[in-house]
Design a protein around this nucleic acid. Structure first.
Lengths: 194, 194
DNA sequence: GTCTATACACCGATAGAC
DNA sequence: GTCTATCGGTGTATAGAC
């Protein structure tokens, strides 16, 4: 049922997140939604909690990989699509409980990023001067990287690509500098400049 | 009328952007909305166009100031609040005409940013090595700065501040490096770390 | 231009049978 | 747990008088 809610949110937007549509999607009656969730607000908060839990699990999974920084970036850039995030953000502005959930989730994720970056920096105290733009504090780096990842997915979703290739290259180089035991340097297909 | 629509969008979200609410706000009957705009979709597109025009005018105004880069950053960071942007982004995912308007607006703004940064870089070819993280291509710099500005306002709107002070410092230093004829180096009030 | 009147669909939520 | 029945409210949109 939360899956159905998430699908409606992603595909049709929060204005269409109604008890009837959710019920239809799983083949039950509309009133049953109010048996499991007292109000639509409760449902929304639960749906976000499920999404946040999933994302957190992906992130801790990435931490245990051989190249955690590369994995974390992959999680950021392949995050549940931009539409869903946009819907939850818009909802969070007017739903106090959701707002709290979202901000706590962001802070939790950022803490994990910072720890991973700090760990990589410690393992990497040799020749600091070759890091280039990656020579920032873990906190600043985490913020910039997640901002860029969100902007990349958001703009891709609406058909903007200007500068994306440059940013992908930049991130790739920074990752290689921070986590040098290279995991297959795949050749980059240069997307067109706009 | 477009002002009323924007106010509803900002304050109540796109689900509440109805002909009745807009009409109420300006003291007319609901049906009059459909006299000026054939459908609600038309109204939404017109409302975004008005916002985009306003933003563009602010930006070209900033270009003519004495410290264009500092002014442009000020425009980015004081952009129409995060809620409104979130609503238009969510709408753009399911409204083809709005999607086109939004992506064209983003590209237009980015082009202007790039030109301003390229101009500053040309005026600034002395000692490139002190630029720090600001020694990136104009395109990459523009992308990172706007991403960061959006993330700062978005997170502030929902009560997240982790890392914001660091990023503001970083931007401030980069601006000072790129546009050194200093415009009153105001002392930064250090916000609490979270 | 602005209004009245109106059609018709959908919404959240409750009460109560099975 | 899932259903039927039902409430009052709100939505987009059209037709037509003034």
């Amino acid at each position: 049922m939360l899956e159905a809610a998430e699908a409606v949110l992603r595909e049709e937007g929060y204005a269409m997140l109604t008890s009837r549509r959710i019920a239809n999607r799983i083949g039950v009656k509309q009133q049953l939604v109010f048996y499991y969730f007292r109000t639509m607000d409760d449902l929304i908060v639960s749906a976000f909690r499920a999404l946040a839990k999933r994302e957190l699990e992906r992130l801790v999974g990435a931490l245990q990989s051989e190249h955690p920084l590369h994995e974390i970036w992959s999680v950021c850039i392949n995050t549940g699509d931009a539409r869903l995030i946009a819907e939850f953000m818009a909802l969070a502005h007017r739903n106090e409980r959701l707002r709290t959930e979202v901000s706590e989730h962001i802070e939790r994720m950022r803490c994990i990023h910072v720890e991973a970056l700090a760990g990589a920096a410690k393992r990497n105290k040799t020749k600091k001067k070759d890091l280039g733009p990656a020579a920032l504090s873990p906190l600043a780096l985490s913020f910039l990287a997640t901002s860029a990842a969100l902007a990349l997915t958001r703009e891709s979703a609406i058909g903007v690509a200007m500068g994306h290739a440059e940013i992908q290259d930049l991130i790739g180089q920074s990752l290689a500098a921070l986590e040098p035991d290279r995991p297959a340097p795949k050749p980059r297909s240069r997307s067109r400049r706009t």
